[in-house]
């Protein structure tokens, strides 16, 4: 009996936390997404009335969701966010893999120093890092003035408010999230396997494709998810560095909440974003557990 009680005591706090800060807010947002806009405080209608403890008179509908489908603005925002997140993840993978590989193969003394260098940027605020990048990219910023001084260019390059600015900022911000899981799997890779591969006639290049890469798949998947998921909902980078035509769902969400004050519509945008992220992840997890 006391054993069981102790077990509950351990399990309850995290569950309570999830309930309070995740599940309840989730249902609040979901409920708002089914409501209608009104010009009062709060700016949405109630979708049911309380009859004592029981909700009655349900008036919610999926109108907001239908609206999202009708206006191409939202679909384009979603697609653009997914595209940006997808290519940022690919670039992160391409840049992060060699870095993780070198760290994993480095001597133990070097390894910790290199890992520290990867994590170090996380110790400064991401907003600060983005403003630093803006300082580099802007018309009279560091890169332009340097290039002009050397004489490579005569006119400043337009880097701010371009795709380049958004992509490079996302890659720079999220790169450590790619490197760390890749490092973890590559570091566990048994050196004997590479020696066996080489002994059995595979050149180092072939060994990499046939042994190292397939065995680091878990790290690749984890790293890509860690970059892709926050990148889809990224708001700060496209807002500060992207062009006005660059629709990303995080930015659209902000506009709906704070500029248009259309909370019900904004809530439905958030719900769809969650679904877009969670459903493929659940599918991926499922596929992985079936394979094992």
């Amino acid at each position: 009996m006391t054993q069981r009680l102790k077990r509950y005591l351990v399990v309850i706090p995290p569950f309570a936390w999830l309930l309070l800060f995740f599940l309840i807010p989730f249902f609040v947002v979901f409920q708002v997404s089914l409501a209608d806009l009104r010009l009062q405080r709060p700016p949405f209608t109630s979708i049911f009335e309380w009859d004592g403890w029981w909700p009655t008179n349900f008036t919610g509908d999926l109108e907001n969701y239908w609206f999202l489908l009708e206006d191409s603005l939202y679909i384009n925002s979603y697609l653009n966010s997914l595209k940006t997140a997808f290519f940022s993840s690919l670039v992160c993978l391409a840049v992060g893999y060699p870095i993780a590989y070198v760290i994993a193969r480095a001597s133990p003394n070097w390894r910790n120093t290199l890992l520290l260098l990867v994590i170090l940027p996380f110790w400064t605020s991401s907003l600060l890092r983005i403003y630093a990048l803006i300082g580099m990219y802007s018309t009279n910023g560091f890169i332009n003035t340097t290039l002009m001084k050397i004489g490579i260019i005569s006119e400043p390059l337009q880097m701010m408010n371009t795709d380049f600015a958004v992509y490079s900022a996302i890659v720079i911000t999220y790169l450590p999230l790619m490197i760390l899981p890749l490092y973890a799997t590559l570091q566990k890779l048994d050196e004997d396997l590479l020696e066996a591969s080489s002994d059995l006639g595979a050149s180092p290049f072939k060994s990499f494709w046939q042994v190292t890469l397939p065995l680091s798949a878990p790290g690749i998947i984890a790293g890509c998810l860690l970059v892709f998921i926050p990148a889809v909902g990224e708001y700060v980078i496209p807002a500060l560095m992207g062009g006005p035509g660059q629709l990303m769902i995080g930015k659209t969400l902000w506009t709906e909440y704070f500029n248009n004050r259309d909370w019900p519509l904004a809530s439905s945008v958030a719900m769809i974003m969650l679904a877009v992220l969670v459903i493929p992840m659940m599918w991926l997890r499922n596929a992985q557990s079936v394979r094992d």
Binding site: D190, D192, A196, S197, S198, D199, L200, G201, S203
Partner: peptide, 18 residues
Amino acid sequence: PPWSRPVNMMFQSYALFP
């Protein structure tokens, strides 16, 4: 180089590709 030698090795850990 090892991948071009006419010898093969059986490893203590077996080193089978998992």
